[in-house]
Design a binder for these strands. Sequence first.
DNA 1: AGGGAATCTTAATGTAGGTTAATAACGACT
DNA 2: AGTCGTTATTAACCTACATTAAGATTCCCT
Lengths: 193, 193
Amino acid sequence: MTPIDKLIVHFRKSITLTDDEAEIVGGCFTIVELKKKEILLYEGDLSSHMRFISDGCLRSYYMDEDTKEHIIQFGIEDWWINDLYSYLTNTPSKQFVQAIENSVVLQIHKDKLNDLYNNVPAVERFFRFKFEKAYVSLQERTINAMSKTAEEHYLDFRTKHRDIEQRVPQYMIASYLGITPEFLSKLRKNISQ
Amino acid sequence: MTPIDKLIVHFRKSITLTDDEAEIVGGCFTIVELKKKEILLYEGDLSSHMRFISDGCLRSYYMDEDTKEHIIQFGIEDWWINDLYSYLTNTPSKQFVQAIENSVVLQIHKDKLNDLYNNVPAVERFFRFKFEKAYVSLQERTINAMSKTAEEHYLDFRTKHRDIEQRVPQYMIASYLGITPEFLSKLRKNISQ
DNA sequence: AGGGAATCTTAATGTAGGTTAATAACGACT
DNA sequence: AGTCGTTATTAACCTACATTAAGATTCCCT
């Protein structure tokens, strides 16, 4: 299955597209191939594309006071990854997006997407849902962060994202959870005894 | 100025409405008057309205394990307040929305709002912006929470929300910041010396 | 196979913020 | 003005997690 095929299958999980529409939609995206560690979006760049992961694994993260990395999101096949903040506000990104493995990403420019909204209305509905879901999962994460302990966060992550846990180094999981790798190591020791 | 007038003025800050359209829009909202401490939305309720604050001050919060309250949002005149999570996912709310002062709220049911989208398209654009902004400010808050200290959060809050700071009790600000009132008290002492 | 980089673990020590509990100050109602 | 409920402060002690620094382990490259 080509990356574009995967994208169409992905769209068709939540909206209906005729074959003609699928053709149009597929034609609006461009392929980006990334080597492990390659950076797709730099801090300071304007994020003007929506990005679909066809293959591989990426992360978005930001640096606080130019030192420590904080991972905001992981993404694997069939997910979208972006700095939505920058995309929505047209301001320079505060985040990086980097490939953790060799990856294939399909992206569409904001302007082209706006045209597509007019030509294929179902796509607009798709992205409205997408933004709503993005909000919902961000709120879930924010609320959990406020009331749970680090060990609970880790256990939650393990049950919700087994697939990711097995593909990314442990210190990145620590960063995503907002703790140090040393402390995660200690937690794991406690848990397994 | 009536509550409905305030609402229309509010809409017209980001979209254009003819007088006829304004008439239609205004007619879709209903007024809710709340006494101080009265609860507008209970945990477990379905949040099926969008709610505009015409007068007063409210908060949304959730309870963790039926004990401690965590404030998620404050709202004053000219803001919207809701459990967007429940509204968007049609699931029972995990939050309460409560009046901190006597307040006047204008609300519109989801179904009516969906009709309104068809009759007055500008309204749909208004709410798309609203959801985008909600996402953006939630992400800002989440990222800040990860990298800043409690004292920084408090100082940020003071500069960004002076108006709110002067209207709500200090222990609620502590709850919003995710710290105990005792610790906020200590911070304030350090800051003022 | 072997050497360097990347990742993970362990342990000692430090600190931001929580808990408990008591007291103080404020505010609103009669 | 006095009383009661609400809100704010103080101080002693506690805990979850960070920091530092040293090894141990695994991974990958030629």
